[in-house]
Computed example of a mutant assay.
Amino acid sequence: MSAVPAPATRPDPRDLTGTGLDEAWVTDLVERTLAEDLTGGSPLPHAPDQAVAHDVTSAATVPATQRGTADLVARADGVVAGLPVAARVFARLSPSATIVAGAADGDVVRRGDVLLTISGHVRALLAAERSALNIASRASGIATATRAWVDAVAGTGAVVLDTRKTTPLLRPLEKYAVRCGGGSNKRMGLYDVAMIKDNHVAAAGSVAAAVAAVRERAPRVTVQVEADTVAQAVEAVEAGADFLLLDNMPPDVLRAAVAAVAGRAETEATGGLTLAVAREVAATGVDYLSVGALTHSSPILDLALDLRPA
């Protein structure tokens, strides 16, 4: 486990540099997430104090001028992700808040570690609490699960990939979390990689016809073809596929498919993969293992906010 650097070495915890997350997308996510909790989805008031006033519990029980400090704390061991987005949630409702990082995305943390420390108006901290935790817990859960897969195939040369099986409207965050866990992203959507599956082949008439049609319409796009058998894998690579999705093949068949392809296309194992067989599958020589469960089934990492009123 890597040691967590001292907070003094941390950059601004709200900085998105190096995350690959789009500034406008993150701003919109923060707005929508807070609006869901504070206004039932109606546009969030621009003025922070007006937005915070929608937290009926805190508005009734916390003096408007009361200040305090809150620690965002890990309640379980794991890999953290989404901290810059969580920090922006707090900053949206308390622009003058002081936010100090105790960890960075991608760090391995232990139960009890402080990930962020936020000092500001207590009403704002409490109004932002659940939205910030939901984002960071979800992203950290994905990063933690991804790291387990990456560790399972370490040394084999195989790379762990995600899929398009993401939570609607959260794909950039969830795929970022996969990267924080040491995995890689496959395609972001239907626009950046062509994935020819059985229905496309049926519509086009053959694998070769489907590949040719994609090449004609989108010549610069990577073309991936799904194969269920070694023969289909060979047919696809001979048709000009760049990438083969080897679907639900047992290890011995995967090994044969990799040998038959002989480096003419990249190979990806998918379908029915579990951590228990990850290393065996990786040892067949495939370039990638794609795991939909990283984004559709990872449990959250338990995080909490501990408040210290001034």
Rank of each mutant, 00 (worst) to 15 (best):
G102L: 12
A104T: 10
D105I: 03
G106D: 10
V109R: 12
D113W: 10
D113R: 05
D113Q: 11
L116A: 01
I118K: 11
I118S: 04
I118M: 05
H121Y: 14
A124L: 13
A124Y: 13
L125V: 00
L126H: 01
A127I: 02
R130Y: 03
S131G: 15
A132T: 05
S137Y: 00
S137M: 13
A139K: 03
G141D: 10
G141M: 04
T144Q: 04
A145F: 05
T146Y: 14
W149R: 00
A152R: 14
A152T: 15
A154L: 12
G155H: 10
G155D: 09
G157S: 01
V160A: 01
D162L: 01
D162V: 04
D162S: 05
T163H: 13
T163D: 14
T163M: 06
T167A: 10
L169H: 15
R171Y: 09
P172G: 11
P172L: 00
K175Y: 05
G181V: 06
R187V: 02
R187G: 05
L190P: 03
Y191Q: 11
D192K: 04
V193L: 02
M195H: 08
M195G: 07
I196D: 09
K197N: 04
D198A: 02
V201A: 11
A202G: 13
A202S: 15
A202I: 02
A204W: 02
G205T: 07
G205F: 00
S206C: 04
V207K: 12
A208V: 06
A210E: 08
A212Q: 07
A212G: 08
A213E: 13
A213K: 04
A213N: 03
E216P: 05
R217Q: 13
R217G: 07
R217A: 15
R220H: 11
R220Y: 14
T222Y: 01
T222S: 05
T222C: 14
V223R: 00
E226K: 10
